[in-house]
Design a protein around this nucleic acid. Structure first.
Length: 550
RNA sequence: GCCCCGGUAGCUCAGCUGGAUAGAGCAACGGCCUUCUAAGCCGUAGGCCACAGGUUCGAAUCCUGUCCGGGGUACCA
């Protein structure tokens, strides 16, 4: 087999260098050179718009400039098989098949390390997500954030970060008080008393079940206002939430309670520090944060006239706490309904001297549930919702996870329940699974015929156009992973894997792996082993399974 | 009013740090299994990339404005 050549990224690097050298000869300097694969493969494997960008500077036509550059260009002809110029002035490079063929040994050698970045090595990250107060079961609406947060965590881990998955909640406050009162009302109703739910009480059936539980374990003689009602509800519901998340393969490392910041004095301290900065004032018995002094269009209440803080103040204290824990990266994942809260938190952090560059806030748009062609309106309080558990149980964790990350978080997501359930066979996630299972099956089939994988395959036998494009697709994997890290947008990985699977399925129909042609069989076994690795790596980052048969 | 996100094929959406002929899945139509899994592959059809200006050699992509949808603009979280 040929020597392992350059590592994929180095390909671009080399060309970059060669182009810079050529420009030097022409006595031109530029800040950066763009080198991207052209849409139309007929133009080659990598193209640069360099000549187009230099027209103004050189006052020549881009075609002329491109020709000049090409004249001065010297490249490794073992790697670059062809250089062409096409209108309006692109310079195109065709990379020799040998380069792509040598990729296989790289992938096989690196295995589940292939495509891994080192950006996060020796760094820590905190990803806060879900953070729903335990007032009811998680709904499908929470699912998007849960999966998004876990997948973003996975991307960071892939690049070496030590990630803490964190859940922030509040077991004091109005919501939880209402929860306790709702349970209490159901409790007394079960004892035959004519008591109605509080006006804003929780109406779901689970409240009745919790009341029954209280009745069973604590008897009939509880008095109104006993904290047992709220406490029991919280315990039961939190247990439910954790199990819902676990069904999706999501486990938080840390649960942080807002209450702890009252107890530690962090909230008072935060307020005091802001006060020291002259950003706090009292008005109509409430305490205000003077955000207008920071360029915002209105001031915000931090402590209500009732003496109870709004969510903003504890949020600030909480974020200080996260910053104090010295993470290299702090990620908040919020739904679009929280979009207005974080700028104030960041302002506060900024004023208090924290490096807000470390904070990244990811906002995702809402999920609209569609059932029977109609939108389903949901409300936890009214007990009108589809739980995340119901969904997971019906279509499986992989489908749920994939549905939630296959689309950009910036887009509203229509989740068609009927489609997810009834047509689950045509779900795009199965397309990926199928590719993986097919590979496993071929390998198994080969083994049954005595074809053992050997390192002495000859990669130059992989010259079919389907084989080459499959190799090219794998070549790009590390770059896609890097992009995913920079943007923290999981759908780029999903899109990539779809394309990889497409290339594989195409290869599968065009080329038979196990044949009487031993050298070709061995080369193709090496090829699909590499594909399996890349597929599996991608699936693993997304938290999806890698079935060996379907 | 102001702020954020979106408006791309019949439907759901990719593509958006500017590049060459705008893509996928579903739905429609037509092909491909004596051969490693047809949960697959190939083909046909389907588009003023909301609209109008602007920047640029070049705009779905960047800027401005308008329209439409969603969210926020709470002493709810």
């Amino acid at each position: 087999m040929p020597q392992c050549r350059k590592w994929p990224m180095k390909m671009k690097h080399q060309l970059n260098q060669a182009l810079y050298n050529a420009l030097k000869k022409l006595d031109v300097s530029v800040e950066s050179i763009q080198l991207t694969p052209p849409k139309n493969p007929e133009f080659g494997d990598l193209s640069t718009n360099l000549a187009l960008t230099l027209t103004k500077l050189l006052k020549k036509s881009p075609m002329e400039i491109a020709a000049d550059i090409q004249q001065c260009l010297s490249v490794d002809t073992a790697l670059i098989s062809d250089i062409t110029i096409t209108p309006p002035g692109f310079i195109n490079f065709r990379i020799s098949p040998a380069y792509f063929q040598s990729l296989i040994s790289q992938i096989l050698k690196k295995g589940n390390q292939f495509g891994r970045g080192r950006t996060g090595e020796n760094k820590t990250a905190n990803v806060e997500f879900v953070s729903a107060n335990p007032t009811g079961p998680l709904t499908v609406g929470h699912g998007r954030q849960a999966v998004l947060g876990d997948t973003v965590s996975g991307i960071l881990e892939w690049h070496g970060y030590d990630v803490t998955r964190e859940y922030y909640f509040n077991d004091a406050g109005r919501q939880m008080r209402m929860l306790g009162q709702s349970v209490e009302a159901r409790y007394f109703q079960q004892l035959g008393q004519d008591i109605s739910l509080p006006e804003d009480g929780y109406q779901g059936d689970y409240i009745t079940a919790i009341a029954q539980n209280v009745l069973d374990t604590h008897g009939e003689n509880l008095e109104s206002g006993n904290p047992i009602f709220r406490k029991t509800a919280e315990d039961i519901i939190f247990g439910l939430i954790k199990s819902t998340l676990k069904n999706l393969g999501i486990i938080h490392d840390q649960f942080t309670n807002e209450k702890s910041f009252y107890e530690s004095g962090a909230i008072d301290d935060t307020l005091q520090k802001l006060r020291d900065n002259n950003l706090i004032y009292e008005f109509e018995k409430a305490t205000w944060f003077k955000t207008t002094a920071l360029g915002k269009d209105q001031d915000r209440v931090l402590i209500k006239s009732t003496g109870e803080p709004t969510y903003r103040l504890p949020d600030m204290a909480y974020h200080r706490n996260k910053m104090d824990r010295n993470y290299d990266l702090v990620i908040d994942i919020f739904g679009a309904d929280h979009i207005d809260t974080y700028p104030d938190v960041l302002s506060a952090l900024d004023i208090l001297g924290y490096d807000t560059e470390k904070v990244r806030v990811l906002i995702h748009q809402f999920v609209t549930l569609v059932r029977g062609g109609e939108k389903v309106k949901m409300s936890t309080r009214k007990g009108d919702y589809v739980t995340l558990d119901e969904l997971t149980n019906e279509v499986g964790a992989d489908v749920v996870r994939y549905f939630f990350i296959m689309r950009s978080m910036n887009s509203h997501l229509n989740f068609d329940l009927d489609l997810a359930k009834d047509h689950s066979d045509q779900n795009p996630v199965y397309y990926l699974h199928y590719a993986h299972a097919r590979i496993c099956n071929i390998i198994k089939h080969g083994e049954s015929l005595g074809h053992k994988f050997t390192k002495d395959y000859n990669p130059s036998l992989l010259s079919h156009s389907s084989e080459i494009s499959l190799l090219k697709q794998m070549d790009v994997f590390p770059e896609v992973m890097e992009l995913a890290l920079n943007t923290l947008e999981p759908q780029t990985i999903a899109n990539y894997l779809q394309e990889l699977a497409t290339h594989f399925h195409k290869f599968y129909t065009d080329c038979k792996v196990i044949t009487n042609d031993i050298p070709t069989t061995q080369a193709r076994l090496a090829l699909i082993s590499a594909v399996r690795i890349v597929l599996a790596n991608g699936l693993q980052i997304l938290g999806l399974s890698t079935p060996e048969r379907m």
